[in-house]
């Protein structure tokens, strides 16, 4: 059974807040809290190895901080920042595997994020690949003319991409008007908060709080 995306988002945020509240260097406490995503990872229908590897994407940033801490002889802090950033991104990755980006965005809207912002996010998601394809074909055209390293070509590609984006937004707006758009986007997301969500949220927050403050 799938949780309501709002429940998933709230649990993720609670967990990240609990992590953020730990004093740097308190590695035992941090390790205790790491148990949660690890348990979740093994209980959820997610590609485990893939997520564990993907989470390493955050390491360049935290390696830099860890390196400075190490140079100053503070191993505990170095370990702390590496571990905390790794486990945070792992929690985010698990959440984004259990709920789609769209579901999470709509959960944000239901939880009070401005509708306008969420709609803009949806448009970005819809058109990322379209514009990337366009940028790619421009790059190919520039390469064919043997001008991979030209400032002028790069600048005019950017300009062209921008102007085409403007034209596209007018075209989209016309298509919206033609189907009766009157200024506000209608919403029809079935999102149902059930008893199971309340229970999951309560157990989750209680678990996080216990591990963080009582253990």
């Amino acid at each position: 059974m799938k949780l309501d995306p709002r429940c998933a988002l709230l649990l993720l945020l609670s967990y990240l807040i609990a992590l953020a509240s730990i004093q740097p260097g308190a590695n035992r406490l941090l390790l205790t809290l790491c148990a949660l995503p690890v348990v979740l990872l093994f209980l959820s229908p997610v590609p485990r190895a893939e997520l564990l590897a993907q989470a390493a994407y955050v390491l360049p940033f935290s390696f830099a901080i860890a390196a400075v801490a190490l140079l100053r002889g503070n191993t505990a802090q170095a370990v702390f920042f590496l571990l905390r950033s790794y486990i945070s991104i792992l929690a985010v990755l698990i959440t984004t595997k259990l709920a789609t980006t769209l579901e999470l965005l709509r959960a944000m809207e239901r939880l009070g994020a401005p509708r306008f912002l969420i709609v803009v996010c949806e448009f970005v998601i819809r058109y990322i690949e379209v514009l990337r394809k366009e940028a790619d074909s421009m790059r190919l055209a520039a390469l064919c003319r043997g001008a991979a390293q030209s400032k002028l070509i790069a600048a005019s590609s950017l300009g062209m991409l921008f102007v085409r984006s403007l034209e596209r937004s007018t075209g989209i707006h016309n298509a919206m008007l033609a189907r009766g758009f009157n200024g506000s986007l209608p919403r029809a997301y079935p999102m149902q908060w059930r008893l199971a969500d309340t229970v999951a949220l309560a157990i989750g927050i209680a678990g996080i709080a216990t591990l963080r403050w009582a253990a």
């Binding site: 819809r126 379209v130 596209r168 075209g171 989209i172 016309n174 298509a175």
Partner: peptide, 14 residues
């Protein structure tokens, strides 16, 4: 009912 030339622009929702 208006079907525009660019389906990519017409289908704007995710």
């Amino acid at each position: 009912g208006f079907v525009f030339q660019s389906s990519e622009n017409q289908l704007f929702l995710p």
